[in-house]
Write a protein that binds this DNA or RNA. Structure first.
Lengths: 173, 173
DNA sequence: AACTCTGTACAGTTTCAACTGTACATAATT
DNA sequence: AATTATGTACAGTTGAAACTGTACAGAGTT
C-alpha cells in the first residue's frame, strides 16, 4: 500500500510535469528547460544540481547549463543556505509575471522593432521609387511598397493588442 | 543604373523577407516555412513550385512539402488558372486574421485543455490524499496539490487574457 | 495508347541542437 | 598546504529535423 501510493505520487508528478511543460514550451522554452523548470517548481524547497540530475535522469552538466538558461530568463533564482556547500536553486513563484508578462514584453519589443525597421525600408524605397522607368520594375517596386505598408499595419495591430493585454499597462479606455 | 536599381530591389526584397520572417517565426512557423510564406506574400500574383524553388534556391521537393504545410495552416491557397498545367499558390491576404487570430485560438484551446487535465488530476489527487499517513508523503502530496491549484489559476489567467485579445470576442465590459 | 509533364513519396544526407563524460578551475575543508 | 568537493568549459556523440535527388504515380497532351 505504501509502495503503491509512492508510485501513484511519482506517476502523478511525471504526468503533471509533462502537461505543464507543454504550456511552458508555448512560451518559448525548450522542452528540456521546461521540464527542468517544472521540476523545480513542483519541488518543495530549493534543489541542488545533483537532485535535479537524479530527478530528471540527465547529466549534471545538462542541469548546470539548463539552470543557467533559466537564471538568465529570470525564471529561477539562486538561494543561499548557511553552511551548505552546494548551490541551491528554486523556481520563482509568480507564474503569471514570469511567463505571461515577460512574453508580452517580448512581443511588444519585437513588434516595435519591426515597425521601425520596416518603416525605414519603406522610406528608403519611396525615395527610389520615383526613379524607376521600366514598367515591370515599377510594378514590382509598387507591390513591395504596398506590402511594406500592410506589414507595418500588421505589426502595429500586434503591438496594440499586446498592449491591451499587459496587466501593468491597463486598457486605454 | 538599371542594373544597380535591380540589385537594390532584389536586396530590399531579401531584407524584407528576412525581417518579416522573424515575426512569423514568433507565431510558430519554422524558418523555412516563414520565408516561403513571405516570398509568396511579396510576390504579385500566384507562384508555381518552380518559381518558389528558384526564388529561394531550394529544391522543388522542399517547396512542395513547405506549401503543403502552409496550406494545412490555412496561410496559403491554391489558385486555378484556365489552361495552365502547373499548380499555383498564393498567400492569403489578411495577415491579422491568418496569424494573430489563429494564434489566439491556439492559445485558448491549449489553455482550456490544460485546465481540464490539471483539474482532473487535482480531483484524483484529492481523493487519494486522505489516505496518506506517512508524514513526508503527506507533505509532498500537499505541495503537489497546492501547485496544481496554482497551475490551474495560471491557465485560467491565460485563457482570460487571450479572450480579451480576440477581436471576434470583444472585451467583457 | 504512347508520351510528356507535374507533384510527391521515400530514402539518404546534411545540419543543428541537446546531451554526455572528461578535465579543469575554484572554493571549502582538513 | 594538501585534499576534497563542486560547478562549468570543452570536445565529441547522439538524435531529430530540414533538405535533396531519384523514382514513381497520375493527369494532360498528342
Amino acid at each position: 500500500m505504501v509502495v503503491k501510493d509512492h508510485h501513484f505520487l511519482e506517476d502523478m508528478h511525471t504526468k503533471v510535469t509533462h502537461e505543464f511543460s507543454k504550456t511552458l514550451e508555448m512560451f518559448g522554452l525548450t522542452p528540456a528547460d521546461a521540464r527542468l523548470f517544472v521540476t523545480l517548481y513542483l519541488h518543495q524547497g530549493p534543489m541542488t544540481l545533483d537532485e535535479m540530475s537524479k530527478a530528471l535522469g540527465k547529466s549534471k552538466t545538462s542541469m548546470s547549463t539548463g539552470v543557467r538558461g533559466l537564471l538568465d530568463q529570470g525564471l529561477v533564482e539562486r538561494v543561499w543556505k548557511k553552511g551548505f556547500r552546494k548551490d541551491l536553486y528554486q523556481a520563482n513563484e509568480n507564474l503569471y509575471r514570469n511567463f505571461m508578462s515577460s512574453y508580452i514584453k517580448k512581443w511588444q519589443s519585437a513588434a516595435n522593432g519591426q515597425i521601425n525597421r520596416l518603416e525605414s525600408m519603406e522610406g528608403e524605397l519611396k525615395d527610389r521609387i520615383k526613379e524607376y522607368v521600366n514598367q515591370e520594375e515599377m510594378q514590382q517596386a509598387d507591390q513591395l511598397y504596398r506590402r511594406l505598408g500592410d506589414m507595418v499595419r500588421f505589426h502595429e495591430w500586434i503591438a496594440g493588442a499586446f498592449k491591451e493585454l499587459d496587466p501593468n499597462e491597463p486598457p486605454s479606455d
